[in-house]
């Protein structure tokens, strides 16, 4: 079934191959800002005020981090900075100097993070646009609270909007991932 998507994506060069950088990517080791991205060290000589969202999308071709508002209002761009959830649209390149960034592409080596598997089992996504942000927010929640209560889930997940209303699926998927022995046994 996974293969079935390749055809759909083929008209969009670069989307399937998320690691292929496009654009004026400048990778020089004596450049201004260095950081770790999905486990790899990088250094970039770009406008330090550029939001990380656009650095990821336009310079690294990492398309999983989504633009929804650019003003910290929707959570579609949620990523991890040193393990904590932040909005990539409100984080500048300067702010990530010396720190470690994880995006949806780096959440697990094979796209089989327990949350991603739970998301598939619960068939959470509809249009799917908000889902990388939802999953990254949920992953940060589980890092902090491996067995979150509904109140903790409410608090964390209310920061990511979904226009398609997939919220109840998200709640079920988080519980499933947090309690594998109960839910999958």
């Amino acid at each position: 079934m996974i293969g079935s998507l390749a055809g759909l994506l083929s008209p969009f060069p670069g989307i399937c191959n998320a690691t292929a950088p496009y654009g004026p990517l400048i990778l020089t080791w004596d450049a201004m800002i260095s950081f770790t991205l999905n486990g790899e060290p990088h250094a970039l000589d770009l406008d330090p005020e550029m939001p990380l969202l656009w650095v990821l999308r336009d310079y690294f071709g990492l398309m999983g981090t989504k633009y929804g508002c650019g003003r910290s209002q929707c959570g579609a761009c949620t990523i991890h900075l040193d393990g904590a959830p932040v909005q990539a649209c409100a984080t500048t390149l300067a702010q990530v100097a010396g720190r470690s960034i994880t995006t949806i592409e780096g959440l697990s080596p094979d796209g089989r993070h327990p949350l991603q598997l739970a998301w598939i089992l619960e068939q959470v996504p509809q249009c799917g646009y908000c889902q990388p942000g939802q999953i990254m927010m949920a992953a940060a929640l589980l890092n902090k609270h491996p067995r979150p209560t509904d109140a903790q889930i409410d608090e964390a997940m209310s920061r990511v909007l979904c226009r398609c209303g997939t919220y109840d699926g998200i709640r079920r998927a988080i519980h499933r991932a947090a309690n594998p022995e109960v839910q999958n046994g």
Binding site: I120, G128, Q131
Partner: peptide, 27 residues
Amino acid sequence: PQRLDVPEKVRGRAGFGLDVRLPGLLF
């Protein structure tokens, strides 16, 4: 049955309009 679009959507690899990249693209 499971939706065909879900595996790509949970990996952040589904291609939306803003994800299109072409050689020489201007924004």
